[in-house]
């Protein structure tokens, strides 16, 4: 804390230096195991099956119920742990439409955890999942302010903070067949865009995918070390150079 304060007061009043202050977040504890999702942006088709499947499982599981307000009205709103967003990259006609699922990234340095005044937000030592203890949460919303990704949503009916649990009540349930011990979103994805596993195990499916296909983190500038990673779009190279009459790629192909 003292070093932290020194940083704060030492920082000159310049815009460029604003981000360098407050980088001391205490000693980082490296966990032996870190469960996470790896999302393949090549194959996500934006069907929202992961969104509805997540909602179905978690509304009736230990994390629920997740309120839906005005569900059949003009402005329905509700609590979700997972959203699928859509982005357009590049300049017409060389544009890419990229569907982008977004949920809690289960950071290895989660900024939401140390700020919690009650200890309701915590990171599990055994598998690295970031969870909220709904019985301790006072609904102050400070953890949501402290998450740069907007991964946390306050449940308006229960007035406690909620977030993706990585289906913690499912992945460790030995009553379920082994192939079902995966997050609901992973099970629901029809294209296999969501991989699940231990990113600390170098031989796991997720580690191999990150290693071989250039997995990356969101907002690396804040050093939160998200456990969830994304696999970038791959542009397929043509087998032979395009002929004069053949269609050459139009527009910039600067989408990653």
């Amino acid at each position: 804390m003292i070093a932290w304060l020194k940083d704060l007061f030492a920082a000159p009043a310049a815009i460029v230096d604003a981000a360098t202050i407050g980088t001391d977040r205490g000693p980082s504890t490296t966990l032996a195991r870190q469960l996470a999702l790896v999302i393949d942006l090549n194959v996500c088709v934006g069907c929202h099956a992961c969104v509805t499947s997540c909602k179905e499982w978690n509304a009736s599981g230990s994390a629920g119920p997740l309120v839906d307000e005005n569900a059949y009205g003009a402005d329905p709103t509700g609590t979700f742990f997972n959203r699928v967003q859509t982005y357009e990259a590049g300049i017409f006609p060389g544009t890419d439409t990229i569907h982008f699922p977004k949920s809690c990234l289960h950071c290895e340095e989660p900024p939401c955890v140390p700020v919690c005044p009650t200890g309701a937000s915590y990171k599990r030592a055994e598998d690295g999942i970031v969870l909220v203890d709904y019985d301790k949460c006072i609904g102050c919303k400070y953890c949501a302010w402290a998450c740069p990704y907007g991964a946390r949503e306050l449940d308006e009916a229960r007035q406690v903070m909620t977030k993706c649990t990585l289906c913690v009540d499912r992945i460790h349930d030995e009553q379920l067949p082994k192939e079902d011990r995966k997050p609901a979103c992973v099970k629901a994805c029809p294209t296999g865009a969501r991989l699940f596993g231990d990113v600390k195990d170098p031989d796991s499916e997720v580690s191999i995918a990150i290693r071989e296909r250039g997995g990356y983190s969101l907002m690396p500038e804040w050093q939160t070390k998200p456990a969830n990673q994304y696999l970038p779009r791959r542009i397929t190279e043509a087998a032979a150079p395009p002929t004069r009459s053949g269609a050459s790629p139009a527009g910039p192909t600067d989408a990653k």
């Binding site: 859509t86 982005y87 990229i98 990653k256």
Partner: peptide, 11 residues
Amino acid sequence: TGIAATRLVQT
């Protein structure tokens, strides 16, 4: 988003 395009918009 990690998408490196210079023109990138949410739809």
